[in-house]
Design a protein around this nucleic acid. Structure first.
Lengths: 197, 197
DNA sequence: CCTTTTACAATGCGATCGCATTACAACGCG
DNA sequence: CGCGTTGTAATGCGATCGCATTGTAAAAGG
């Protein structure tokens, strides 16, 4: 066997370049040449690790979700079993309070737009939704145990739509993340009474 | 004076082509050549009416908002003075229940993404926000007149973020518009009691 | 040692991009 | 009737695109 390199590490370097380009200029700023330049490598290297531009984009999208998951788990540090804490960590991620999270939202939306005409992208983009929804249902149902008239499924959809709407407002339309936080907290007071003040 | 044509009509033909292209393939599907082909005219004609591609895009974005406004006013037919009805019509527009509205949302988001690096686009995209927000504040405040503890400003932001989050879910992530409607109605029951059932 | 396989780098190709240029057709005005 | 302005088409240019091709350096296995 010939020269050995860390393939995952090489791919990660290229993904980092894609990430920076998408966050800075949107998906239209990504070309094999710009990715190579941003990563400081030759274009041949990019082609060596990704057979096509689509492969590079799909890989980058999957890594973007990995990165989101990592940030959420970082926030959870040691409370992975606490469903309520997990939901709040996910909401934090959706809200776009720090620059990296806002980048993630922009990357996400850019891919979702392209996903309209590319089923492979759409599949990745909607992959984790069911899991998160079920978590939200569980937490909301637990908070309203014994109460009648609370549709946890509906409330979960409402909460997630609100959070992503707020996050997109922040990341794409320049809204204030402080106001977004206040707005989400107002709703959380209603639907999860007694949580986080 | 030489040959006279209806300039606005000619521009509208080109805008319609841009609209269809963006809705179908996203902003990256728009080029001077594809617009000309979609409109069934020569490329020279496109260049004659728009000095640059950016001009074409800015114009198209503004017309896209005109179209949204027209749809909202259509829904209002004769109840233009009813602030509550106006707000509900705007929410309907944001929710993406019919195909043209979903197109509008996709067009919007595509432009917003590009607006990150183009202040002219961002200005157009955020233009009408203040007006709509103030309308929502007025309606919510009126519905809770005399009550204490209701922050109409906050509730207005919450409502609009929820509606746009739901609409983006429908238009970009393939969510069900029926569920989106139910979800919005659930929230409206809370914040505007006694409205629409 | 030497072959084989991997890891690149460099370059070329055809297509497409935005835009400039050029040519011409059509029509109102002196 | 020219004449000039405007509307429209056609074409060219330089840049950039994704991708294919080619060449080569390096290291593990026979």
């Amino acid at each position: 066997m010939p020269k050995q390199v860390d393939v995952d590490e090489q791919k990660r370097v290229l993904f980092d370049a894609v990430w920076r380009l998408v966050a800075r200029e949107g998906l239209e700023g990504v070309s094999l040449r710009t990715v190579a330049a941003e990563a400081g490598v030759s274009m041949g290297r990019v082609q060596h690790y990704f057979a096509s531009k689509d492969d590079l984009l799909i890989y980058s999208l999957q890594r973007a979700y990995d990165r989101m998951e990592t940030r959420i788990l970082d926030r959870l540090k040691g409370r992975e079993e606490d469903e309520q804490a997990a939901l709040l960590a996910i909401l934090d991620e959706l809200l776009g309070e720090n620059a990296e999270t806002r980048d993630a939202i922009r990357v996400n939306v850019a891919f979702a737009a392209r996903g309209q005409s590319d089923p492979r992208i759409m599949a990745v983009v909607t992959e984790g939704d069911r899991e998160i929804h079920e978590l939200a249902v569980a937490v909301i149902a637990a908070a309203h145990a014994g109460e009648a008239g609370v549709d946890a499924d509906l409330e979960a959809r409402l909460l997630m739509a609100l959070a992503s709407g707020l996050g997109i407002g922040v990341a794409l339309y320049g809204a204030s993340s402080v106001l977004a936080r206040q707005t989400l907290d107002r709703h959380l007071q209603r639907v999860l009474p007694g949580v986080r003040i």
